[in-house]
Design a protein around this nucleic acid. Structure first.
Lengths: 183, 183
DNA sequence: AATTCAATTCGATGTTTATCTAATTAAATC
DNA sequence: GATTTAATTAGATAAACATCGAATTGAATT
């Protein structure tokens, strides 16, 4: 999940917490010692340590009076690994990629669902075409006449729409017969 | 410097910024596109992108109307490297270790101010020595007898204390005369 | 030159969070 | 068992920050 990664970064996104990690990388310290070194109250250190412990970066070990904290090297290593290319892709999971298309189509559509204009800008044209093409059923073959008729629902300039659909590879035309199908 | 690392973590310590990085890891996007995909206003995306750009994680490239942002893979790699053992030590630079000294001395001192024992651990010994040496006035020359007398206030084993003070370079002894002074 | 459109900046708002003091808990020494 | 001492929790405050809408900038098309 992506939340784990965010929390990890949040844990390290504070100067004092980073210093604590740096100190613990050298040797274990008690809450009191860290407070003395960093000029903070014990309660504040406690708060920071609990955040670090939440993501498994540190752990406590009771030692006579003191609560001695130590760095969990393993978590550090593991997260360094986690922080690599393919895992970054996982961060995007669950993101609404069609949001952009929908927005563009909305912008270009009139209340009756017809297009005000055919977008001139490449990116927007693509989005609209990805939307328009959904009226065709994959696998079914359509004659040019049928295609035009179906496209006329969106815009009178069916020729342009048809051409662009093929141009952007969303529909295909068989060389001779003038038949089209959705890819 | 450590601030750089903190800022880097801060830049990634937000769910939407992480998603932006994840998206840009796949392909460049314009501000508008990101806004549509993440369901945020363009101004918010702009804000996030500027934070990411501050740490060099993304860069913009003007492309006709749009400002297309792309991920700076190099920075990602570099920071992954930066976030390794020895660099964690650098985070601790500039930290007030005196606070720690004071705490250690307290731990090793009895109510009357004498040392319970002379610390065996190097770090703690250093801390105690830095404290002990403060009873000597810089510039003043002391005979070995005087030194021993003053050190006896802390611990009966004055010879060890004296030797360690010199060993750690906190006091200096003149070759022949047996005179000592604080550095 | 005028207009359009994306991007940025500005100002405001509500939330998060780092820090403190005070109170409480927990554990070890007397 | 009472007392000391470290750690945590709770409550309060102030600073940092994410987000939005509005205003401004700046570039590209007409």
């Amino acid at each position: 999940m992506s939340e784990e990664l965010v929390n990890f970064f949040k844990a390290l996104a504070d100067p004092n917490r980073l210093k604590i990690v740096g100190l613990l990388a050298q040797q274990p310290y008690s809450v009191e010692q860290l407070a003395a070194i960093l000029h903070l109250r014990a309660s504040t250190i406690s708060h920071h340590l609990s955040k670090l412990a939440e993501v498994g970066l540190v752990s406590a070990k009771a030692e006579s009076y003191y609560n001695v904290y130590q760095l969990e090297e393993e978590t550090l290593q593991k997260t360094r690994r986690l922080f690599s290319q393919q895992d970054l892709a996982a961060v995007v999971e669950g993101v609404d990629m069609e949001g952009y298309d929908r927005k563009v189509v909305e912008d270009y559509s009139m209340p009756d669902g017809r297009l005000k204009t055919i977008p001139a800008q490449r990116k927007k044209l693509e989005a609209v075409l990805r939307y328009v093409v959904t009226v065709f059923t994959p696998g079914v073959r359509y004659s040019e006449k049928q295609v035009n008729e179906m496209l006329s629902r969106f815009h009178e300039d069916t020729a342009t729409l048809r051409r662009e659909l093929v141009g952007y590879g969303l529909m295909q035309r068989e060389g001779g017969g003038g038949e089209y199908w959705r890819k």
